[in-house]
């Protein structure tokens, strides 16, 4: 099985879906011929499929998202890209009021099979407007599905599931995982929504996290193993639908839970997960649930400041040690 980067695995998934179904098309700022996407995910696709199906757009985020909605309800399957997750603020009406609510408020008369790709996360010293992690806003919006792939194998399988889903899917990526490599099959496969993956099995404590924090948590788990601490690491893979079962079973086994994401703490997905676990597995908890998040500030620019902001291995390890 060939080893591929997350970026190439994602591109393969997009490409294969475009070959499979002619209704699928890509649109967004600089996704086409001259650039191939700010993170080069769509590079080369415009050469292969033409500029109509890999369509550059003006800098008009709300209308990019709205165009995807209009195309989706009339027989196309758009995969629209918002260049940075921070810029999705400009498209909130179309994402949260239109795409998410249309099927419901029209009584099931239509469905909105679109994928909106964007990228979250810090670590590149590009400051407050290009580094945020805003996934909890969308978890709070009924009607959206949310994929959070953190590994190359998953990103290909999840993009295919997203494209084949008849509902609006917010497909969230992370800047620091595009170059991460994994074995990725060349053939067609999907990764189902709503099924978490246990990335590492352990007995003493469960760590649930997303995106780049999963990569850090796995490193931490290796380190702690040397001290005899056995860490189970869970990757939800989608936030909506959310696989509660895998998480709850793990907590029942370990009795301890540490939640790790790059979001600012107040109102983060980690708050929702903590609430869910205390509702459904309170009696199995042997220690308070720990949360490792960024502080409640905008994302700073300067390396020592950003380094302080983003949770690191040390903080994750410390949180685990505090409850084990």
């Amino acid at each position: 099985m060939p080893e591929k980067t997350y970026r190439d695995a994602l591109k393969d998934g997009l490409r294969e879906e475009m070959i499979r179904d002619e209704r699928v098309f890509i649109m967004g700022e600089d996704v086409g011929l001259n650039w191939g996407g700010a993170f080069k995910v769509t590079k080369g696709l415009a050469d292969e499929f033409g500029e109509a199906r890999v369509r550059d757009t003006p800098i008009s985020e709300n209308t990019i998202a709205g165009t995807a909605v209009g195309a989706a309800i009339t027989g196309m399957i758009p995969v629209a890209e918002i260049m940075f997750g921070d810029l999705i603020t400009l498209a909130m009406d179309q994402v949260c009021n239109q795409a998410a609510k249309m099927r419901y408020m029209f009584g099931g008369q239509t469905s909105v099979p679109l994928v909106l790709r964007t990228v979250f996360g810090g670590g590149k010293n590009i400051a407050s407007h290009h580094s945020q992690s805003l996934e909890s806003w969308f978890m709070h919006t009924p009607g959206l599905k949310i994929a959070v792939p953190a590994f190359a194998y998953d990103v290909k399988g999840l993009i295919k599931t997203a494209i084949r889903d008849p509902n609006p899917v917010l497909f969230l990526e992370h800047k620091l995982v595009y170059d991460k490599k994994e074995d990725v099959p060349d053939e067609d496969y999907t990764v189902p929504f709503g099924q978490a993956k246990v990335r590492r099995e352990g007995e003493d404590v469960t760590v649930w996290g997303t995106f780049f924090m999963l990569h850090k948590a796995l490193e931490v788990a290796d380190e702690l193993a040397k001290d005899g601490i056995s860490v189970e690491v869970i990757d939800p893979r989608t936030l909506a639908p959310l696989d509660k079962k895998t998480l709850i079973e793990s907590v029942k086994k370990t009795g301890r839970l540490v939640l790790v994401t790059e979001e600012t703490k107040t109102g983060a997905t980690t708050a929702e997960i903590a609430a869910t676990v205390q509702e459904e597995a309170f009696d199995w908890l042997d220690a308070p649930i720990k949360r490792v998040n960024a502080p409640d500030t905008p994302v700073p620019f300067s390396p020592p400041l950003e380094g302080y902001f983003i949770p690191d291995n040390k903080r994750i390890a410390q949180a685990i040690r505090e409850i084990v």
Binding site: N62, A65, G66, T67, G70, A71, T74, M76, Q98
Partner: peptide, 13 residues
Amino acid sequence: SGLPIAVGAALSC
């Protein structure tokens, strides 16, 4: 909010 949706429907047509 209907204007972008109309753009998408027309693009689809």
